[in-house]
Design a protein around this nucleic acid. Structure first.
Lengths: 90, 90
DNA sequence: CAAAGACTTAGACGTTCATCTAAATATCTC
DNA sequence: GAGATATTTAGATGAACGTCTAAGTCTTTG
C-alpha cells in the first residue's frame, strides 16, 4: 500500500505531472501537452498516480480533470520524519 | 539528484533497511542477516542507499558500520509538503 | 605473509517498467 | 446515429532493476 506510493514517485515524469497539478488542476490533454512522450504514455502515468492515491479525477464532458490529493503528501511527510528522523518528535 | 532519492525509496527491501537503521546503527553483516536474500544483494542495496545520500558508512575494523542520514529525510519531508501541499506554508 | 572473515564488485539472468502504436470506450455535435 | 474529439486499454519492445553466484579487495590474526 505504501509501496504503490513510493513506486509512483520514483518516475521523473510522474513527479513532473504532480508538480504541474500542484499549481492548478488540469485535464489529461493539458497535462499530455507538457511532455514529449505519447499521449497514451501520459495516460498510463496518470493511472499509476491515481492507483497510488496521489491524484483524483473527474469527468468533465469530453475531458478528464485531474487534481492533486494533497493529504497524501502530508501523511507521507509525517511518515518520513516520524520513522526516519527522530521518531519521537513530529 | 532528487531522482536517486526517490528511486532508492522505491524498493521495499531498501525501505526496510532504512527502518532498521532508524532504530540503531548496524554493520552490513547485521543488516544482511535480517533478509532472506543473498549477502551481496543487501550490499548492493546499501550502495544504492549510500549513493542516494540516505545512509553513510564507516569502516570499523573488518566491519562496515552503516547509519541513517536523518537530515535528508527532513529535507524530503519539507519538499513534499512545500511542493505538493499548500506551497506557501510548510 | 598466509589464511580467514567481512564486505564489495562483476557478470549473468529473469522480471518489471516506460514507452510506443493500434484499437477500444466515452462524450459531444450535427 | 455518424463523425469528431478526448481519453483509456491492449499488446509489443527495449531498457532498467533486483537477484544470484563467483571473484576481488580490505582487515585482522596467527
Amino acid at each position: 500500500m505504501r509501496d504503490h506510493l513510493f513506486r509512483a514517485l520514483a518516475d521523473p515524469t510522474r513527479r513532473k505531472i504532480l508538480e504541474l497539478l500542484a499549481t492548478r488542476d488540469r485535464t489529461a490533454g493539458e497535462l499530455a501537452e507538457e511532455f514529449p512522450i505519447a499521449f497514451a504514455s501520459v495516460s498510463h502515468h496518470l493511472g499509476v498516480l491515481k492507483n497510488a492515491g496521489l491524484v483524483a479525477s473527474e469527468r468533465e464532458g469530453q475531458h478528464m480533470r485531474y487534481r492533486l490529493n494533497t493529504t497524501v503528501f502530508q501523511d507521507m511527510a509525517r511518515y518520513l520524519v516520524k520513522t526516519f528522523s527522530g521518531g519521537a518528535d513530529a
